[in-house]
Design a protein around this nucleic acid. Structure first.
Lengths: 155, 155
DNA sequence: CTATTGAGTAGTCAAATGCAACTCAGCCTG
DNA sequence: CAGGCTGAGTTGCATTTGACTACTCAATAG
């Protein structure tokens, strides 16, 4: 099998990267998943330019990752909130994987930890095959073309 | 706990995103992990401009994710190969998470699959806490500040 | 009625990207 | 050994995208 024959653009990684493969987008998702949901909060916390934030949020909403909903606390004037859609919530493993890697390789001490709501223990991503084997070592996982693979177009 | 008080830049996600949070970088890592390792192969397969590829590879090498090594098949002239370092190999979960998400939400049929080398079954990333609970449902994982968290600097 | 907050646009400028052409070294061929 | 070819990049320039600042506009608070 020659990977080079397969269309690089028609690939889940390429398509996913098109949506979240952006410095700001990942940080926006991190903040939104933590409860920082308002435009100005995000703008202030991330230090992102407002027009860029506006564009990123718009793209995330268009891609169904976030949803923009008006929200009114009583006694306060209504505002917008950006919340994760179910599709967006499923990006959590991507964030967890980045946290795990960053913690392991870029910091002495982990700035963030993921914990199980129930028991409070640390959560890790364990690659597990559907037959139930947990793959702990390296080199046991192989990426192969799936049914939706497409050959590169060259005439 | 107010996340907004914590320094956004001093965060594993932010630091990891600084290195891999880039459309091209993710695709380069995907290709390298599949065995597309030479400059020209990468350039051709990804359709990336050569100067950009050069810059990205340089950055990945500088960050210890890839290693550049001269390689000579016998009878052929020596060339360069970019290979994953151990640190780079540990980014695999990030790629797996992106594949999983992209397969689920962006394609009808998965263009790529991850399988267990041993048994051939599909591999998924299962968030598992150190007490051994596999967290299958949503909303069971909470991200909390770790010992290395740093408050935002404002005077 | 004026100030303030929330949520953006508009305008400007710098940085990153993309394209094509150029370099440069090691072979290979005649 | 001159001329090609291939691998692995640079360099120069046009275009696109990003970032910073300032401005708008509506709703509410005082």
């Amino acid at each position: 099998m020659n990977w080079a024959d397969l269309d690089s653009g028609h690939c889940s990684i390429a398509r996913a990267a098109d949506i979240v493969g952006d410095r700001w987008t990942l940080l926006i998702l991190r903040d939104v998943s933590r409860g920082i949901r308002r435009f100005d909060e995000l703008s202030a916390h991330l230090g992102i330019a407002r027009n860029i934030l506006s564009a990123r949020l718009g793209a995330l909403v268009a891609n169904g990752v976030l949803e923009r909903m008006p929200y009114a606390e009583e006694g306060r004037r209504p505002h917008q909130e950006y919340v994760m859609t179910p599709r967006g919530a499923e990006l959590l493993p991507v964030l967890l994987a980045l946290i795990a890697w960053g913690d392991r390789h870029l910091s002495e001490e982990p700035p963030v930890r993921a914990v199980h709501n129930g028991c409070g223990h640390e959560v890790r991503l364990v690659p597990t095959c559907t037959a139930g084997h947990a793959l702990t070592g390296g080199g046991e996982v192989q990426i192969v073309p799936g049914p939706g693979a497409r050959r590169v177009d060259r005439e």
